[in-house]
Nucleic acid binder design. Sequence first.
DNA 1: GTGGTCTAGACCACT
DNA 2: GTGGTCTAGACCACG
Lengths: 125, 125, 125, 125
Amino acid sequence: MLQLDFRSRVPVYEQLTEKIKELIVHKVLASDEQLPSVRELALELTVNPNTIQKAYRELERQGYIYSAPGKGSFVKPIEQIDNTRQKEELLEQLRKITAELLYLGTSIEEILATIQKTKKGGGEK
Amino acid sequence: MLQLDFRSRVPVYEQLTEKIKELIVHKVLASDEQLPSVRELALELTVNPNTIQKAYRELERQGYIYSAPGKGSFVKPIEQIDNTRQKEELLEQLRKITAELLYLGTSIEEILATIQKTKKGGGEK
Amino acid sequence: MLQLDFRSRVPVYEQLTEKIKELIVHKVLASDEQLPSVRELALELTVNPNTIQKAYRELERQGYIYSAPGKGSFVKPIEQIDNTRQKEELLEQLRKITAELLYLGTSIEEILATIQKTKKGGGEK
Amino acid sequence: MLQLDFRSRVPVYEQLTEKIKELIVHKVLASDEQLPSVRELALELTVNPNTIQKAYRELERQGYIYSAPGKGSFVKPIEQIDNTRQKEELLEQLRKITAELLYLGTSIEEILATIQKTKKGGGEK
DNA sequence: GTGGTCTAGACCACT
DNA sequence: GTGGTCTAGACCACG
């Protein structure tokens, strides 16, 4: 499920953050669902618990999960995410990527189609 | 023109790579146009020449420029860029960001509008 | 009345301590008024009795309540609170926060106004 | 200068964060001034480098400093701090503490005087 | 020499 | 058994 590339230059904890975020965003993990415990996941991925915790902390900072000592870590309900600033940043990234794609000769139609497909696929899986 | 933030945590050479790529993508730099020499740019930006070279090498690797030893570095004509793999990567990033935006409650209309606006603004500047 | 956030990272017993302290400070709970019994409150809040007891013990330590074994817990009359040390601590916190607010560009007027408003609202509620 | 209490229940990295923040807020450390390196400070305080780094990260997250790999950590200029949300939180803390002080019999005059004194003392030292 | 990442393992508080 | 803190020490990329 959570495939990591230890040879990559991007830090393991960051790969993990991204992968888990994807699971949340694609609703594979539901609201208030419990994530694997730090130690459990560490064993499964043969990674140090500290690394897992770093990923969990980052997700918490970004507002995607919450952790309570003695209880565990859980997916944060969407309604409770403060998204204004994040939306701005994501839209900015969207602009950059679009500009680059257009330069490389991608048609606007193909780009829009990709967006549309993502919308349809987002809620399922 | 090339504003660098020496305070930023992102490496100088990477900032430079991004900025130059933007200039190319927005067609401020035309095909086969010569880029400033390494030493010249290093002086102008008060940066170590090695840093400039690293940025140029990265742009060459990504296929946006080509270097002719003894002559200088030039913008690679669009037609010659091998864009299949890069397009795939960019589209993949597009999907990720779109999924995240949708999860955060952004409407599909707002996303599409952002793309459209980028198209109009892309060729000018 | 005593709203707890079980998702929060701050321990339940600490939330409880703070909430009850607020009730006392805002005079919702009067001097010598009896607090709910540990078991009663535990049922009402669906919390482990140990957690309630820990909160009560903490309040007793801070001098806000007193417990008579076999009878229950009661709000300590203000006159009997040894407040010298606590006042010092609170004033110290006040200084820290004020310094931080000033550093962040808050005007002294806004700070003083906040204090004044608190005074007016403090005794009611 | 940076006195730590290893017996305290409050984490060392948090004590450090607070102490350094004080130095910044009281302008003992000026804008863009370099902080001691992670390792240097670790040696001086006989603390693990990771602990120092955790404190520095927290300060960076709160916007008081910035760190650049290979260069060092520096005090962030005040103008660049995004303070709206932090101000709200600090004012809320101010209200709580004021209510508690008033309950403990502190006169409003004494409270206001404390604020005034802080203002005068803030810029010196 | 700088910050950043990561491992191996210990200990603590909370439930 | 949970997350969180901390130590001791290794290795990497950046400048």
